[in-house]
């Protein structure tokens, strides 16, 4: 059995796309897991997108806690004799998968960019060394656990005629000794850097939050645009929500053009944007690493370059 779990629907649909292919190759069934809400409509949808079976789990567990989800999934994996478990690689999934792997004494590969079956073996690919290399790995344990980042695989087209089983189950867990005492939603901008065609990305070279408007004005010259940023702009300074954060620990983007403005080009930033078609760097330091990773660059003060660049592009278009 191939088992798939992600707390987010879109990611789940993408995993079901790949999961279907892997299940076919292993000649096994593909099962989706929904924890917490008895959402039959969602279960039906997972079947249309490739699942053979959906476990709808009722539990005493309230909000996500890795300790408790580990208990739920271990039971399901053992009972269904799953040999391949796909877990959505958002922050919840990334802390759940290794915990689950420890419980099952299983191999676990984090954030796979590709998965295939070779002679019955599960083979994974993932990026290591901050994007400098790709490791191909083979899972040798009875069960293999793999986390799958969003936008890695495509969902299938929905097939409204597909049939599958929805199995309701009640699983009670031993509550964790930890307690969630507060949840603060962060500011949302609703941007999706992962789908953007053109990204203007801001780094510590910007002196103030207000100055990001300059980047927005440049971006406004293009269709399908979004504003990106380096980790400190989001995580240290809180100038932009997490949705804009590009890099190893942020979003992986592949626009047609990526403008890196006032970004030094540390490898952890490059790891998130190296698949861009064209990279343009604007930085006042001629020795900034970003120039080694750029197709075009201007050495100069962004406060001088950006206004002129915006004008010049506007003129070029007319």
């Amino acid at each position: 059995m191939v088992l798939a779990y992600a707390g987010k629907k879109q990611l789940m649909l993408e995993m079901l796309g790949k999961g279907r292919e892997l299940a076919n190759e292993l000649e096994k069934e593909l099962t989706a897991v929904i924890v917490g809400d008895e959402n039959h409509a969602l279960a039906e949808e997972y079947i249309q997108y490739g699942a053979d079976k959906v476990f709808l789990i009722r539990t005493n567990q309230e909000m996500f806690k890795a300790e408790e989800y580990t208990q739920i999934l271990t039971g399901l994996i053992e009972e269904s004799e799953s040999e391949l478990v796909l877990i959505g690689s958002n922050k919840d999934g990334k802390e759940l998968a290794p915990r689950l792997a420890a419980k099952l004494k299983a191999g676990c590969v984090s954030e796979c960019t590709d998965i295939h079956i070779d002679d019955g073996d599960i083979i994974t690919e993932r990026t290591i060394f901050s994007g400098k290399a790709v490791a191909k790995e083979k899972i040798n344990s009875k069960q293999g656990i793999i986390t799958v980042p969003s936008k890695t695989f495509d969902p299938l087209d929905a097939d409204t005629g597909r049939n599958g089983d929805i199995i309701e189950k009640e699983i009670m867990v031993d509550p964790s000794r930890s307690k969630i005492i507060d949840v603060k939603e962060m500011e949302h901008s609703g941007v999706n850097v992962e789908d953007a065609e053109v990204i203007v990305s801001c780094g510590r070279g910007f002196d103030n939050r207000e100055d990001i408007e300059l980047a927005e004005n440049l971006a406004a010259q293009f269709k399908g645009r979004a504003i990106g940023c380096s980790r400190p702009i989001s995580a240290d300074l809180n100038w932009l929500p997490e949705e804009h954060w590009v890099g190893l620990s942020g979003h992986k983007v592949k626009p047609r053009v990526y403008f890196a403005v006032g970004i030094s080009g540390q490898i952890q930033h490059i790891a998130g944007m190296r698949d861009s078609d064209i990279i343009v760097a604007i930085n006042k330091d001629p020795d900034a690493l970003i120039f080694d990773n750029a197709d075009y660059g201007i050495v100069g003060d962004l406060y001088k370059v950006l206004p002129e660049l915006i004008d010049a592009i506007e003129n070029a278009k007319t």
Binding site: A133, A135, D295
Partner: peptide, 18 residues
């Protein structure tokens, strides 16, 4: 439980027109 079978480099050749 996980065995590395190959590691390949990812090259990053860019035009570098500065």
């Amino acid at each position: 439980t996980v065995e590395t079978i190959d590691i390949t480099g990812v090259s990053m050749d860019r035009k570098n027109i500065i």
